[in-house]
Computed example of a mutant assay.
Amino acid sequence: MAAAPQIRTATLDDEDPLGRLDRDTWSTLHAVMPRPQPPYEPFYNQRFGPRDHIVAELDGRVVGYIRLGYPTTLASNAHVRQILGLAVADEARGAGVGRALLRAACEEARSQGARRITLRVLGHNVPARALYASEGFVVEGVLPGEFLLDGAYVDDVLMGRSL
């Protein structure tokens, strides 16, 4: 049986491995931005730093991350957290990394006092949608044909759950 992923808050030292992971896992299955090209932007920026990322390690190597933030800057919305990114290395798929990260994000949001957690997922990303549904997320809205990816219009699916 494979070892369970180790889950922890990101550090400054994770910036390069997270940037590589983000580029290596880029796909129109989940990305609406163009493929990153050199010179690459830093993974951390003014809006998101280490404190906003939970990472997963297998055998001491970063194999996944989830980005957790606020959906808006409004005080009236401060009780909600949003998953703003999730990536798992190809070689770590099927090892429970995505599920462990999702559960850790829900726990972190709860510890911050959040009452709800939301996310957006592309309609054609069936594996991600199945994972989210299995963890209690429900479809709360659909923006039909919101993105044009690889010549096809793709829905933007809004999902959420109570904490």
Rank of each mutant, 00 (worst) to 15 (best):
Y65Q: 06
R93P: 06
Q112E: 14
G98S: 09
V63C: 01
A104D: 06
V121D: 03
A105Y: 02
R47Y: 12
H124Q: 14
G123K: 06
L84N: 04
A114K: 02
E57I: 04
R99Q: 15
R120C: 15
H53Y: 14
V97C: 08
A75Q: 13
L101Y: 02
P127R: 02
E57V: 02
L122T: 05
E57G: 00
A105D: 05
R110M: 06
R110Y: 05
N125S: 03
R51Q: 15
R99S: 15
G64I: 03
A114N: 03
Q82R: 13
A100T: 00
N45M: 06
G69N: 08
G69M: 05
A87S: 15
R115C: 11
Y44E: 01
R115T: 14
T73D: 14
N125H: 04
H53Q: 13
A56D: 03
L119I: 07
Q82G: 12
P127W: 01
Q46E: 15
N125P: 01
T72I: 07
A95M: 14
R81Y: 08
R115V: 12
S76H: 15
Y44F: 12
G94R: 11
L102Y: 01
A100L: 05
H79G: 08
R120S: 15
N77M: 14
A92I: 08
D52Q: 13
Y44W: 04
R103C: 12
L122C: 08
V97N: 01
A87E: 07
H79C: 09
A105M: 07
I117K: 02
E57K: 01
G69C: 09
A114V: 07
Q82S: 15
Q112C: 11
P71L: 09
V62C: 12
H124A: 12
P50Q: 04
S111C: 07
G60S: 12
A109S: 06
Y65S: 09
G94F: 10
L58H: 06
D52C: 12
G94Q: 07
I83A: 06
G60A: 11
R93D: 09
E107M: 05
P71K: 06
A104L: 09
H124C: 10
E107S: 12
E91P: 01
A89F: 08
A87H: 10
G85Q: 01
T73Y: 09
A92G: 06
E108Y: 00
A56K: 04
T118M: 13
A87I: 04
V121N: 03
G64T: 07
D59Y: 10
I117G: 01
R99Y: 13
I83H: 01
G96A: 08
G96M: 08
I54G: 00
L86W: 00
A92H: 05
L119S: 04
V63R: 00
A109C: 05
R61N: 06
E91H: 13
Y70E: 15
T118C: 12
G123T: 07
A75Y: 11
V97Q: 02
R110N: 07
A92K: 03
G96E: 06
I66Q: 00
G49Q: 12
V55Q: 01
L119R: 00
R99T: 14
R93T: 11
V62H: 05
E91Y: 11
N77W: 11
R103F: 08
R103I: 15
R61F: 01
R61V: 13
I83Q: 03
R81G: 02
G64Y: 02
R61H: 10
I83T: 04
I117W: 03
V80N: 09
A92D: 06
Y70N: 15
N77T: 14
